[in-house]
Simulated scan of single mutants.
Amino acid sequence: MRVERICPNEAEALYDCMKQIDQEAQYMLYLPEERTFNKDKLVEHLRYQFYIGVKTEDNKIMGYLSVHMSTLYKLKHIGYISIGLVEELQQQGLATKMFEETIKWAQRKGLRRLELTVITYNTPAIKFYEKLGFKIEGIKRESIYMNEHFYDELYMAMMLNEMNITKPDNLW
């Protein structure tokens, strides 16, 4: 398995991965039957937003992390994260690797903040995000409706300018 950028010509492989994760994961936003394939739209996203993925040797995409950036001037410093990883590859460090590469990219790009939301019942994900350096900023009350119940989401963010970044001595 390798972690690398997802290219526009891999739109169909990314969509297949998303569909599989929608079927496996309880906490993804899309229900399996809700996601539709619009190749042109997905290719456009892959061109203008950041997508990184977990790929097999034959280039099958098994996980992804996307960063959506606004075109609005007042919001250009923010990246909103979505992530999914097929069940069989979880707990192997691949999500951590995707985040590490994303954080490096976001710092190079000049982003100041990365943010995401997570359902409050998804304790493993919350602990994982906190371990990475995300902090809880608030609660979106009853923002998700599933299984005939309303669920709260946590709003979490990482301030990239507050991270401890070690620079080599020769740069000082």
Rank of each mutant, 00 (worst) to 15 (best):
Leu42Ala: 02
Tyr73Ala: 15
His77Lys: 08
Ser70Thr: 12
Arg5Lys: 12
Phe150Lys: 14
Ala125Cys: 05
Val54Glu: 08
Met146Gly: 05
Ile136Gln: 10
Arg112Ile: 07
Val86Cys: 09
Val43His: 02
Thr36Trp: 01
Met98Tyr: 08
Ile119Leu: 00
Lys109Ile: 08
Leu94Thr: 12
Gln49Asn: 15
Ile144Pro: 02
Ser70Glu: 10
Lys55Ala: 12
Leu94Phe: 15
Glu57Cys: 09
Pro32Gly: 07
Leu132Ile: 14
His68Tyr: 11
Met62Thr: 07
Ala25Arg: 09
Ile78His: 13
Gln91Ala: 15
Thr71Cys: 11
Gly79His: 05
Gly138Lys: 04
Ile144Tyr: 07
Leu171Met: 12
Ala106Phe: 05
Ala95Trp: 03
Lys55Tyr: 03
Ile61Phe: 10
Glu148Asp: 13
Glu87Ala: 14
Gln20Leu: 10
Ala25Phe: 02
Met28Arg: 03
Glu57Ala: 14
Tyr15Ala: 08
Glu4Val: 11
Glu142Phe: 01
Cys17Arg: 10
Leu46Glu: 06
Glu4Arg: 15
His68Thr: 15
Phe50Asp: 11
Met156Ala: 04
Asn164Ile: 09
Gln49Pro: 09
Glu4Phe: 03
Gly110Pro: 01
Pro124Leu: 03
Gly133Ile: 01
Tyr27Gln: 05
Thr166Gly: 11
Asn38Gln: 05
Leu111Asn: 12
Leu75Arg: 14
Met18Thr: 12
Leu111Gly: 01
Tyr80Asn: 13
Tyr30Met: 01
His149Phe: 05
Ser82Arg: 01
Tyr145Lys: 03
Leu42Trp: 05
Glu115Met: 15
Arg47Asp: 07
Ala13Met: 09
Asp22Gly: 06
Gln90His: 02
Arg108Met: 11
Lys131Gly: 08
Ser66His: 12
Phe134Tyr: 10
Gly133Asn: 07
Gly63Thr: 07
Met159Phe: 11
Glu87Ser: 14
Leu171Ile: 04
Phe150Asn: 07
Lys60Gln: 15
Glu10Phe: 03
Met146His: 05
Leu154Arg: 03
Phe150Pro: 00
Gln49Thr: 08
Ile136Val: 05
Ser82His: 08
Arg108Val: 06
Pro32Glu: 06
Gln107Asp: 10
Thr56Val: 04
Asn170Leu: 07
Gln90Arg: 15
Pro168Ser: 15
Met1Val: 02
Thr166Asn: 15
Arg35Gly: 00
Gln20Glu: 09
Lys135Gly: 06
Asn164Phe: 03
Asn170Phe: 15
Lys131Val: 05
Leu75Tyr: 14
Leu160Phe: 04
Tyr73Asp: 15
Thr117Trp: 03
Thr96Pro: 05
Thr102Phe: 10
Asp58Phe: 05
Ile165Asp: 07
Met69Gln: 09
His149Pro: 02
Gln20Tyr: 05
Ala13Val: 04
Met69Lys: 13
Gly79Gln: 06
Gly53Glu: 12
Val67Thr: 09
Pro8Tyr: 14
Gln90Glu: 12
Lys167Pro: 00
Lys140Thr: 02
Glu100Met: 13
Asp40Glu: 12
Val118Lys: 08
Glu34His: 09
Gln49Trp: 08
Gly133Pro: 08
Met18Leu: 13
Ile165Ser: 12
Ile136Trp: 01
Ala95Asp: 02
Arg35Asp: 00
Ala125Phe: 02
Leu29Asp: 06
Gln92Asn: 12
Lys104Asn: 14
Leu111Glu: 01
Asn122Gly: 04
Arg112Asn: 10
Asp152Met: 08
Glu24Asp: 04
Tyr155Gln: 10
Ile61Gln: 02
